[in-house]
Design a protein around this nucleic acid. Structure first.
Lengths: 353, 353
DNA sequence: GTGAAAGCGCTAACAC
DNA sequence: GTGTTAGCGCTTTCAC
C-alpha cells in the first residue's frame, strides 16, 4: 500500500496501519468535507470568518476521521518549534525539579513544551545543547547553569533568545531571575549570631560560582558587623554538593582546637547541610546543642531530618515561572530592555540552629 | 529590512539581527559556494557522491557563515520529529530521575531528544500528552505511569509506537521493561523472616498500581510460606509516596497492641521508608532494635540516613536504557514481535533491617 | 558528480 | 465566506 493511497482511506485504528493511526492530511479532510484546505485551516485555528454551517461540516469530518494537525508542517510554516530548551546542571537534584515544574507550568499555559537537558554543568555539553536554538529545534532557552558556564553562551550569542535562572551575572546583559544571595547569607549568619553563636563557619561551594562569592561576602560582612573576624579556618570550599561532602567538611572543621572550633555552621545547600548534621553526629557533637546548622534551599527533606533543618527558602516554583515569563516576553518583543528580577528569600527557623 | 534581504546577507552575530544569528538557508549557502542546494544537502548529510574539492568548498562556506540546518524543515521532509515523549508520574521523585537519565543517554546516542512530561499519574493529562504522537510532535513514547492509566492509552491506540517502563500489564500487548515485583517483595520479606522477624508489616502504595498488587502478593506469600498469617492490620496503603506518608503509616502501625505490633516494616519505596524510620523514632522505637525496616528502589539517600537503609535495588538506569532501546527497535520494525523484558533486582542489606 | 525540480503539510496573502 | 496559490527549507528522485 503506497503512502498516498493510505492517506485517502478513512482512519483505521489498528496495528496494521500506523500511518492512518496518525490521521491523514488537511487536504484529505478538505476533500471529504467538500471545502478547500484554507477553510479547514481556518477552522483548525479558530478564525472567525467561516460560516457556522461550514464550520460544523468540517468539524464533523475531523471528528469522524480522527484527524490531527501535523505540527511538523505547521511549525515549518510558522517558523517556530514551540519548544523551550531548559538546561539544568543536574535534574536529579530536587531543587531543580521544582524550578522545572514552575517553568513547565507557564510554558504549557502558553502552548510550549520543554526540551529538558541535563548539562552536568559542563560548558561543552551546554554549548552543544544551545546549538539547538540555531537549528530551530527550540524557540528559546532557560539556563540554570553556573554563571561561569553561561559566559560561554554569551560568547556564542546574545542575539539568541535565552534567559538565566538562579545563577546569573548581572553584567552579561541577559535577562535573569534569582535571589539576593548576599542578603540571604547575611540573614542566615545574623540569625545565628542573634542566637548567641560567635564562631560561625561557612561551607561553601566552589567560588567560581557567582552565588558562592556573594554568599561568602554576606557571611563575612554579617560577622564583621557583629565585631567578629571571619577567620580563614572557618571557611571550607567543596566542589560537590552531596551528603558526603558536607559530612567530611564538618568533620574537618571539628578538628580545630577547642575555642577555635565553630559553634555554628552555615552550609550553602541543604544536601550539604544534611551531611553536616550526620558528620557532626559522627564526631560526637550535638545539633544544635554544640553546633548549630543552617542550610540553604529548603528542599522537602530539610523539614524531615532530625533535627529539622533551619534554612533559607528560595521560591523555587516562582523562580521557574518568572524565568519562563521573561523568555516569553523576549519572544513578544526581542528588543525590549532586559530586566533582572530578584525574588525574596525567607529564613525558615527550625530546630537545627 | 525584509526577511529575504536579511537572508542574503552574511551572518551578523549581533543583537540587531536575530534571524541572521540563526544562520541563513541552505539556498544561500549553495549560492555563495556556487553549487546547488542538492549538493549542500549531500555534504550536510555525509553522502559519498560529492567530489572532495566541492565538499571542501561547501564546508568552508558553512564554516564561514555559521550556517546551521533548520531541523524544522528537515523534520517535515523526513516526517520525523526525532523527539521521544517520556511520561512520568512525578519527575521530582529521584527514582524517576535516574530512569530518565538512562532513557536520555540512549536517545541522544541515536539522535533523539526527550520531551519530558509530568502527568501526575493522571489519565486525562496522560492522554492529552499522548496525542502529541498523533500531532507528529514526537516519534514515540515511553510511559512510566501506572498500568491502570496505561489502559487508557491502549484504548487510544496500540498502533502508535510506545512502550511501558517499570509499570506494565503483560496482557496489553505493548512492549515493556520492568522487574519481577512479586519476587522482589518476596525476597525482602524472606530476608526479614530469616533475621528472626515474625510480624512483618507492609506499607504499600495504592493498589491500582500493578506493582503494588504484585508486591503485596509477594509479601503475603513469603509470610505464608513461613507459616505466618499476613494480617490485615499489618497492611497499610498510602496514596502518596513521600516522607510524611511513611511517618504517619509507621506511627499508626505502632498503635497496635503489643504482641500484635509489627517487629518489621517493608515499605514499597525508599522515600516512604525514610519517613518510616523517622516515624518510628518519634514513637520511641529503635531501628532496627525494635523494628526492622526495608525499603525499595535504593535511591542515593538510602545509604546516607541513620541507620543506613536495607532495600531492594532496581537497575534504574538500565530500566530507562532498555525502554529506549525497545522503542527504537519498534521504529526500525513496527511489526516485530513485542518482547517483555524483566531485569534483575537486588537485595541490598544495610543496617536498618 | 551535480543540478533541476517535486513535494512533505501547513498557513496566509490575495482574489473573487 | 471561501478558494487558489505561493511558499516555509529541506531531502530526494531523476536527468544529464
Amino acid at each position: 500500500m503506497s503512502v498516498h493511497s493510505s492517506r485517502s482511506l478513512r482512519l483505521q485504528q489498528d496495528a496494521a496501519d500506523p500511518a492512518a493511526a496518525r490521521g491523514g492530511s488537511i487536504a484529505a479532510v478538505a476533500q471529504r468535507a467538500g471545502v478547500s484546505v484554507a477553510t479547514v485551516s481556518r477552522v483548525l485555528n479558530g478564525h472567525a470568518n467561516v460560516r457556522a454551517a461550514t464550520r460544523e461540516r468540517v468539524l464533523a469530518e475531523i471528528e469522524a476521521s480522527g484527524y490531527r494537525v501535523n505540527e511538523l508542517a505547521r511549525n515549518l510554516r510558522t517558523a517556530e518549534s514551540r519548544l523551550l530548551l531548559t538546561m539544568v546542571p543536574d535534574f536529579g537534584n530536587p531543587f531543580y525539579a521544582e524550578i522545572v515544574r514552575g517553568i513547565d507550568g507557564v510554558a504549557r499555559q502558553h502552548g510550549f513544551f520543554l526540551l529538558l537537558c541535563d548539562t552536568g554543568a559542563d560548558a561543552g555539553r551546554e554549548r552543544s545543547y544551545f546549538d539547538l536554538l540555531r537549528r530551530h529545534r527550540a524557540d528559546g532557552a532557560i539556563c540554570l547553569d553556573p554563571a561561569t558556564v553561561q559566559h560561554a553562551l554569551v560568547a556564542e550569542s546574545t542575539a539568541l533568545p535565552w534567559v538565566a535562572c538562579c545563577e546569573f551575572d548581572p553584567d552579561v546583559g541577559v535577562p535573569y531571575v534569582g535571589i539576593d544571595n548576599y542578603r540571604a547569607a547575611h540573614d542566615a549568619v545574623r540569625h545565628l549570631i542573634a542566637r548567641g553563636r560567635r564562631r560561625v563557619a561557612l561551607i561553601n561551594s566552589d567560588e567560581h560560582y557567582l552565588y558562592a562569592r556573594q554568599r561568602r561576602d554576606g557571611w563575612r560582612d554579617a560577622l564583621r558587623e557583629a565585631g567578629i573576624e571571619a577567620r580563614g579556618a572557618w571557611r571550607v570550599n567543596v566542589n560537590c554538593l552531596d551528603y558526603d561532602a558536607g559530612a567530611q567538611a564538618a568533620a574537618a572543621l571539628m578538628q580545630l582546637p577547642a575555642g577555635e572550633a565553630p559553634d555554628a555552621i552555615f552550609a550553602v545547600s541543604d544536601t550539604l547541610a544534611v551531611g553536616v548534621v550526620n558528620g557532626l553526629r559522627g564526631a560526637g557533637r550535638r545539633v544544635p546543642g554544640d553546633v548549630a546548622v543552617v542550610g540553604f534551599d529548603d528542599i522537602a527533606l530539610a523539614a524531615r531530618i532530625d533535627p529539622p533543618l533551619t534554612t533559607i527558602a528560595q521560591p523555587m516554583r516562582e523562580l521557574g515561572e518568572t524565568a519562563a515569563r521573561l523568555l516569553l516576553r523576549r519572544f513578544a518583543d526581542p528588543c525590549a530592555s532586559v530586566p533582572g528580577v530578584l525574588l525574596p528569600h525567607r529564613l525558615v527557623v527550625r530546630e537545627s540552629g
